[in-house]
Design a protein around this nucleic acid. Structure first.
Lengths: 194, 194
DNA sequence: CGCGACGTTGATTTGCCTCAACGATTGTGG
DNA sequence: CCACAATCGTTGAGGCAAATCAACGTCGCG
């Protein structure tokens, strides 16, 4: 039953038969995680790509100085993983951690290849969603170079109003590329001034 | 004959038959551009995705203040386009302009769909290269948040030694997200000090 | 030749960081 | 059920990386 939203999600791009849905179910697994539990860890090989049925997670990098940088948030109907680690089965640069208790549908590396073989339509599906993710990622680069922190925060709130409610402020700061203290000051300015 | 490198490039990921290569040729076109010529312009609909046979181009965004921000460079064996504009056939946020006289192989929107239909393997090919591009893009975001300009410049030189030779310094500054003056100062520091 | 494109250099300013101290809230073990 | 510790956000002082502005040098090209 957890598969309902995933199948709907895929069917927005291609059309799966009943039989194909069964294959999909047989080659993936449901995973539940607690709050603060890791789905995959920096330094280890990312074994699964995860579709979020329910919950909220963050994908982040910890740099040499120990500072964390949020690569991506993932809520219902999103995907998350260290894609490079998953695709090459090499050690990850990012960790994925649950911010809320979450339910995931996980795709293993070998099973994913088997899925592409048995359901070639999925090539198209994953091509499409990856292209979208890539477009969003490029946009984020340009925004971070062309706008100051206050405007980036406004854009974030407009684009992801639900996420803003669900994740701690310091993670949003990290996603925006600023310090938590500075985000706090930005918020204060917005309240007192315009 | 310009198709030789493209076919090789695709064959690193999937295997095209002779007949398929012919289809590919029939549904794409060769385009030559002068230095400084636009391949596509911000504000207009991006009609083609381009594979670079020869030359060097930049994809960039011009913001409200008139400042330019390089999204991507493209040299031999790379792809370039405003992907969002191409996929949705809506006005582009990025322009693509030749830095050197260049030879491109162009894929139109309708022809691309026809190609996917007649050569389904291409779904896999484009899925793969998009995933790689997405991975690189995420890495660029994290680098720009976690390292200072001098280190980013070092990384750029190491990763793209040939590009550094071929494009003006102010475009590299733009790609790195810093002002041309500051890149000049960084270079001077590197010469005088360590 | 003269102009436009590109790079350099210095003076000044600023957006954002770091550090440190301090509430407020949450959750957890005794 | 309380006490205490984490966790999270706020505030202020001071500092630094990088931007801005302005002037100037150089080169290639029409």
């Amino acid at each position: 039953m957890s598969y309902h939203t995933l199948v709907q999600h895929i069917n927005r791009h291609v059309t799966l038969t009943e039989a194909e849905v069964e294959i999909l179910k047989s080659l993936t697994r449901i995973k539940k995680v607690r709050k603060r539990q890791f789905v995959s860890e920096q330094g280890e090989i990312t074994r699964y790509e995860s579709y979020v049925v329910e919950g909220c997670l963050r994908c982040y990098h910890t740099d040499e100085d120990g500072n964390e940088h949020v690569v991506q948030f993932a809520v219902e109907d999103w995907w998350t993983a260290d894609l490079h680690s998953f695709l090459t089965q090499s050690p990850a640069h990012f960790s994925v951690e649950a911010i809320e208790p979450s339910v995931l549908i996980q795709f293993g590396y070998n099973e994913m290849e088997e899925l592409y073989r048995s359901i070639p339509k999925l090539e198209r599906f994953f091509r499409t969603i990856t292209q979208r993710a890539y477009v969003a990622s490029q946009k984020r680069i340009i925004t971070s170079f062309s706008k100051d922190a206050s405007k980036r925060y406004d854009e974030f709130r407009n684009r992801y109003p639900t996420i803003e409610q669900r994740v701690p402020q310091y993670m949003i700061a990290s996603y925006l590329g600023i310090s938590p203290e500075f985000l706090s000051k930005i918020r204060k300015r917005k309240l007192t001034n315009g």
